[in-house]
């Protein structure tokens, strides 16, 4: 039974990294297609569209962060694995889900918003600042999910 607890906790860490990373990969991919379209016609806009493309990449970093904190918490990094009961393991799994799920969804939609914002940069490069705000708004919800995941993981008593 004690081994099931660490399995749940590890599954939580894996889901945080996997789902949030997948969201970022999808988002960066979509924005990258739009960025390539603009650079094909106007290579001088490379720097601006690259920043836009990178915006959906943060969800993957948030997932990685929660994954590290979880692994550290359960002792898989820097020490022996903690002896977790299944209930605690499930609590850690639940704590990892916000960044996993929100990271996946927000990553994709931030990528689409970035792609649309790249269209603004293509036509009006002087509006870069305003264009960047639209995808940045999506980021808010990934940050909220990150906060809850970190607070929950660190708050669980082992």
């Amino acid at each position: 039974m004690s081994e099931l607890g660490i399995v749940y906790a590890l599954l939580g860490a894996a889901l945080a990294v996997l789902l949030a990373g997948a969201g970022s990969a999808i988002g960066v991919g979509i924005a990258g297609q739009a960025a390539s379209g603009v650079v094909t016609e106007d290579p001088s806009k490379f720097a601006k569209v690259l920043i836009m493309q990178l915006l959906p990449g943060t969800q993957g970093i948030y997932g990685l962060l929660v994954g590290f904190i979880t692994l550290s918490k359960i002792g898989l990094i820097g020490g022996g694995a903690a002896n977790l009961d299944p209930k605690t393991g499930l609590m850690i799994l639940a704590a990892c889900l916000p960044i996993g799920i929100v990271g996946l969804i927000s990553g994709k939609y931030q990528g689409m918003t970035s792609a649309a914002a790249i269209g603004i940069v293509a036509k009006k490069p002087d509006q870069f600042g305003k264009a960047m705000l639209f995808p940045a708004m999506v980021e808010t919800y990934a940050i909220l999910a990150l906060l809850i995941s970190i607070i929950a993981v660190t708050g669980i008593q082992i």
Binding site: A34, A35, V38, T40, D42
Partner: peptide
């Protein structure tokens, strides 16, 4: 689900529209 297969093409068209 929004289909994103025209993302590259539309962004390229946005650049061309400037001309």
């Amino acid at each position: 689900m929004t289909d994103t297969k025209y993302t590259y093409a539309v962004a390229r068209i946005r650049s061309l529209e400037v001309a």
